[in-house]
């Protein structure tokens, strides 16, 4: 599903060069649930951005669901993001002026689905996260947990091959964080591949596979439970 080999990423200013990732290698198989942990500045977010095709990398190779993403045009990357990846952000990133229905509709419109198909997918996704009755609500009318569930519905509606979650419970209290985590576990059980970046070690432990990032490289692997996984280490 996700195959990164010797990925490097350098941020340059006039005075400083910062190596955000150095020879970063990782493979995630279909159906895995991987938690990525690490201290601030370790390169977690850079990894997430590159994995989610939000940012380019300077060296190495990256194949997403068999597609070599190096050298793809901006519009090809956008299409790949739209079709393959569902994003869950720490701050939910719902569009405040749109109700839940229209929010979930955003990636589906870019996909070019028909109105009928979009409607069906939106309703199913919102039902799945328990917000079927709140489609016409604005994000500001919902609690944080509900907003994150709505964001998960938006991520799921396009049936992506895998979910990328950036601190999905970072802005939630413990009760709501648990609800969101249970939802992610349920999705994993249903076969969705999930890569979750988190600060929270306890939350990370609930994922079957943990990787720890330090100084821009995978420093430690920890497998909880089963699946068929293979991780390349530094």
């Amino acid at each position: 599903m996700l195959s990164m080999h010797n990925i490097s990423k350098v941020f340059r200013t006039d005075l400083v060069q910062t190596h955000a990732l150095r020879d970063f290698s990782l493979e995630v198989a279909a159906g895995e649930f991987v938690a990525v942990t690490g201290p601030s500045g370790s390169g977690k977010t850079t990894f997430l951005n590159i994995a989610g095709l939000l940012e380019n990398f300077d060296g190495g190779s990256y194949r997403l669901d068999g597609v070599d993403v190096a050298g793809l045009s901006d519009s090809a990357l956008a299409r790949l993001r739209n079709e393959k990846i569902g994003f869950i952000f720490q701050s939910f990133n719902l569009i405040p002026d749109l109700n839940l229905f229209d929010n979930v509709d955003v990636p589906l419109r870019y996909r070019g689905f028909s109105a009928a198909e979009r409607k069906q997918r939106i309703e199913e996704a919102l039902e799945k996260v328990g917000l079927g009755a709140r489609m016409k609500h604005l994000p500001s009318q919902l609690s944080g947990g509900q907003q994150q569930r709505a964001a998960i519905a938006r991520a799921l509606a396009g049936s992506p091959r895998f979910l990328l979650a950036d601190e999905p419970t970072g802005n939630l209290d413990s009760l709501m964080a648990r609800q969101v985590m249970e939802l992610l576990e349920q999705l994993h059980e249903e076969g969705t591949t999930i890569v979750m970046v988190t600060h929270d070690a306890e939350l990370a432990r609930r994922a079957p596979r943990n990787i720890h990032v330090l100084d821009g490289a995978v420093s430690d692997l920890h497998v909880v439970g089963t699946p068929s996984l293979r991780a390349a280490t530094v």
């Binding site: 989610g52 939000l54 956008a78 701050s91 569009i95 405040p96 955003v106 990636p107 870019y110 938006r154």
Partner: peptide, 16 residues
């Protein structure tokens, strides 16, 4: 800006 970034992340091309 954040909203536009989110739209781009969700698959909007520059043209869109």
């Amino acid at each position: 800006t954040r909203q536009i970034g989110t739209r781009r992340a969700l698959g909007a091309s520059q043209w869109q």
